[in-house]
Design a protein around this nucleic acid. Structure first.
Length: 350
DNA sequence: CGTGCTCT
DNA sequence: AGAGCACGG
């Protein structure tokens, strides 16, 4: 589920903003991460996702369609980045995910049997799995909407970080923090979930706003380099060494890496504390110089309302009224906010 | 997650 | 304008 460094992000390096503040910025969104959030969240009370008349899941398309339109209406310029082939060293994490989903599926069946709706929903969400067909249809929808997407050779967060480093995007957008380890100068969180949200099991509402994290401000405030940040990630655990090293949470790991002068020596010293098949040097290199592609172009086009209708209404039984209305909003927003508009690239944190 | 309606 | 709720596919 990505590297967990939430607890050490310094306040000086983060800023909560309104969506409006992101007007004019290209943001390289982690497509898989976004689709997963929609698939997990857009469900009936008992956990059933939205489906078309043939039983195919459509929650991810609904979320992607309406959310992207709202982002574009606010003037944000989204580019979706999709994962390619995961590296071999991610196998353990992927296997563990499969096991977690299987377990969730069993608990879901039990909860449904016992009539516990809320439990059922919780476990149904945890079974969420994106198929390659679902990703392909999301790409098709983006094509029809005129929203660009980029295919990553490997990790999508690495590719998003690459776009941001090259200045083709202002920031990476994801709920996970990995893009910071991959060198993204800025990370924007909460772009799939902005607005008032009910807290689970509570009668309380919180306002969720986009959160910007600035890599340089973060490294400066923590007093570490990006190399030390990657080392920190390996200590607490990444998708490539999911358990990390016993005894190291983010804070302990921060203290440790602050004392590290020679990263090579540090990697050598932690090697023996990791499972035999986990090579910290390989993980370090993967974050420091990940496989990325420069063969992409970011072009915002006029939406094709007929094609959108064909996909969502004809093929997937969306309501024609709603789809046409939303597509027209998108066409208007394209003309006002995207067509011929220059992207903003200015900095925020000095 | 979102839209869209009702009620205040 | 904004909260609450039903429903979308």
């Amino acid at each position: 589920m990505g590297v967990n460094i939430r607890d050490i992000i310094p306040d000086q390096a983060r800023r909560e903003v309104d969506l409006k503040a992101l007007k004019g910025y290209v943001i390289a969104l982690d497509g898989y991460n976004m689709l997963y959030q929609f698939l997990s969240a857009i469900r009936q009370p008992d956990g059933t996702p939205l489906k078309d008349s043939q039983g195919r899941v459509t929650s991810h398309l609904s979320g992607l369609f309406y959310r992207t339109i709202n982002l574009v209406e606010e003037g944000l310029k989204p580019v979706y980045v999709f994962d390619g082939k995961p590296p071999e060293m991610k196998r353990k994490e992927i296997e563990e995910r499969v096991a977690r989903k299987k377990e969730a599926a069993e608990k879901y069946a039990k909860a449904k049997e016992s009539g516990s709706i809320e439990e059922a929903r919780k476990y149904a969400q945890a079974t969420s799995e994106l198929s390659s067909d679902m990703v392909s249809e999301a790409k098709r929808l983006l094509d029809y909407m005129g929203i660009p997407w980029v295919q990553a050779p490997a990790d999508g967060e690495a590719q998003a970080a690459h776009l941001a480093q090259k200045g083709d995007a202002w920031a990476a957008g994801s709920q996970d923090y990995d893009s910071l380890l991959f060198g993204a100068p800025r990370l924007v969180r909460n772009l799939a979930i902005t607005g008032k949200r009910k807290l689970p099991n509570k009668d309380e509402y919180v306002e969720v706003k986009p959160e910007i994290i600035d890599l340089n401000a973060m490294l400066k405030a923590l007093g570490i380099t990006r190399e030390q940040l990657i080392l920190l990630g390996i200590l607490v655990g990444t998708d490539f060494d999911p358990d990390g090293i016993k005894g190291y949470g983010p804070k302990t790991a921060l203290n440790f890496v602050k004392g590290v002068k020679d990263v090579t020596k540090a990697l050598e010293s932690i090697k023996s504390q990791l499972p035999g098949d986990v090579d910290p040097f390989k993980i370090f290199d993967y974050f420091a110089k990940p496989p990325v592609s420069s063969d992409y172009r970011i072009l915002f086009k006029e939406p094709d309302v007929e094609k959108i209708k064909e996909l969502l209404v004809r093929e997937h039984d969306f309501s024609e009224d709603r789809v046409v209305k939303a597509a027209e909003r998108l066409a208007k927003a394209f003309k006002e906010n995207l067509r011929g508009k220059q992207s903003r690239l200015d900095m925020w944190f000095g």
